[in-house]
């Protein structure tokens, strides 16, 4: 990619990542949530991959780590859901819901959002990576 793209990417990629994390964490207060935030997180990696080539992105998160983190995200979500059994019901919100409009409120919803954010962010990145690698092996052949 050209120098302009690389420079701009270097400047904004951190901001994009931060914005994604913000959306994930504020999912219970404002529009957004695990999925939308996760997509933005994944896009920051994709942006890096487009600007600097896949090797730089893979150096940050390898394929094995990506697939492991994806499973961990899913397992976390399931675990939070199963935790509801302690209170008597699947998916029950067992933590204290706190005061409304504060960041640490809404009980397990924020935890679920975080796990979905991990799952979606890494999952989308892994999908993109898989397609890129498929393309690359074809070109080499």
């Amino acid at each position: 990619m050209s120098l302009i793209v690389k420079t701009i990417t270097r400047l904004i990629v951190g901001l994009v990542l931060l914005f994604g994390i913000y959306i994930v964490l504020h999912g219970h207060l404002s529009p957004g949530g695990g999925f939308s935030g996760g997509v933005i997180v994944a896009l920051s990696f994709v942006l890096m991959m487009l600007a600097f080539g896949e090797d730089v992105a893979v150096a940050k998160i390898s394929r094995n780590l990506a697939s492991n983190l994806e499973s961990i995200g899913a397992l976390m979500f399931l675990f939070i859901a199963i935790l509801g059994f302690l209170g008597g019901s699947f998916f029950l919100n067992i933590l204290s819901t706190g005061t409304p409009f504060k960041l640490f409120s809404a009980g397990t919803i924020i935890l679920s959002n975080i796990s979905i954010g991990i799952k979606v962010g890494i999952g989308l990145f892994a999908i993109f990576l898989a397609l890129v690698i498929l393309e690359k092996t074809k070109r080499e052949r």
Binding site: F35, L124, I127, A130, L131, L134, E135, K138
Partner: peptide, 17 residues
């Protein structure tokens, strides 16, 4: 949207193959 994302990713990778 999430479901169709999954299906599109799958079907595009099948198409590439």
């Amino acid at each position: 949207i999430v479901i169709s994302l999954g299906i599109l990713a799958l079907v595009i990778s099948i198409a590439i193959r």
